[in-house]
Write a protein that binds this DNA or RNA. Structure first.
Lengths: 207, 207
DNA sequence: ACGCTATCGGAACACCCCGTCCGTTTAGCT
DNA sequence: AGCTAAACGGACGGGGTGTTCCGATAGCGT
């Protein structure tokens, strides 16, 4: 979906479009969705008007940027679904989706509070959630996932994971790993006690 | 701390001050710390200047508002500490703190820190965290809390709990209850499988 | 090489925010 | 009731945001 109608664009236009998307990706990943459009334009070394010609509104830009992240999300669920052991697939899905969200501060926001008109994003999300529900169903059938788990729990976990703020991407990954492990342990139907991933120092600014 | 120097204020001034604090409390609770000062003044039926005379900066207002919430937090930890069964005290502490945060969207932000000069808040927070650490130590000694639990995990849980967005306060409480239960289950050293609190429908805006 | 036109980008618009100034109101004491 | 100082609140400035206008630029077919 990155190369949709790009062939009908002039060479410099296409170049700018790609630089804008790249800049928006990193900006959203680092600072969340609240980055100013000007800031994105500045990073892409482009005027604000150019940005707005390629993406008529901020929402359009966000939608375009996160379409591929959503695809990555779906791929992760699919891989979990492909695992012969549904419980292991379920666990890996949760871990990897949490890590994906942890590495991109904007993605959780884009995922959860879909914009009024980001229909493609919402549709993709529903598809991914449907598959996740099937995976959960199988994991329950296997007796490893607690039967009272519901799909909304997964959304809750994603929202919660998005609330964790860290200083570096590395810390974000580590925190999300530990967080996911804690939750997976809580979701287990017949528990054992594997060790948690290492603890993470969380930034309490102005301590 | 609500009535510190209020006696030296003129009657209307004191009245306004209290209305401002009340308005700020509910506004912060409902919408988080990002409410406009003007909005708070409007809710308190007061001009912006009046608001700024009583609280020279937004940060001062936030600090004053959340001092009592912080006290409530400390009280919760103390009650947990007072429980003869440290594990039960630990669990109740987590549940109640999560609920407290769920009912006040701004509190998590104010707690996690945020402000450069909210010294009292930070100090109170450190005290509460220290007590929580002691409670965790006892719960570990009792063999019920997994030994690799660390204090940062508690902060992580609070941050995560703050990421959960709901539509109504009732839903927020229900969600935080379920969330806390899931995590407590994950923190248990020797697990059993109690049923989770009821599931919560989470708002995925637009569909 | 030329010119047509798609594309660019700085400046500008409308809006909202925080925090302040100053003329008006009002509490409270005599 | 009258006076004075304390308190009020509408209007202001500076800065930020998303978005648009229009003159300048530069790709590309001829």
């Amino acid at each position: 979906m990155t190369s949709r109608l790009t062939h009908s664009l002039r060479s410099d236009a296409q170049d700018n479009r790609e630089r804008i998307l790249a800049a928006a990706r990193t900006a959203f990943a680092e600072q969340g969705l609240d980055v100013a459009m000007r800031e994105i334009a500045r990073r892409a070394e482009v005027g604000p008007a150019t940005l707005y010609r390629h993406f008529p509104t901020k929402e359009a830009l966000v939608t375009d940027v996160f379409t591929e992240q959503m695809a990555a999300c779906t791929a992760i669920v699919d891989e979990g679904l492909a695992d012969p052991d549904p419980w292991r697939g379920f666990c890996r899905m949760i871990e990897r989706v949490c890590e994906l969200h942890a590495l991109d501060r904007g993605f959780t926001a884009a995922f959860v509070s879909a914009f009024p008109s980001a229909i493609d994003l919402a549709a993709d999300r529903e598809r991914a959630l449907g598959k996740a529900a099937e995976l959960a169903r199988r994991a329950k059938a296997g007796g490893k996932l607690r039967p009272d788990f519901v799909l909304d729990d997964l959304i809750m976990v994603l929202m919660a994971n998005g609330g964790i703020r860290t200083t570096s991407p590395a810390a974000a990954v580590a925190a999300s790993r530990r967080f996911a492990a804690l939750l997976i342990q809580g979701m287990r139907a017949e528990p054992a006690i594997p060790p948690l991933p290492p603890a993470v120092r969380l930034p309490l600014a102005a301590l």
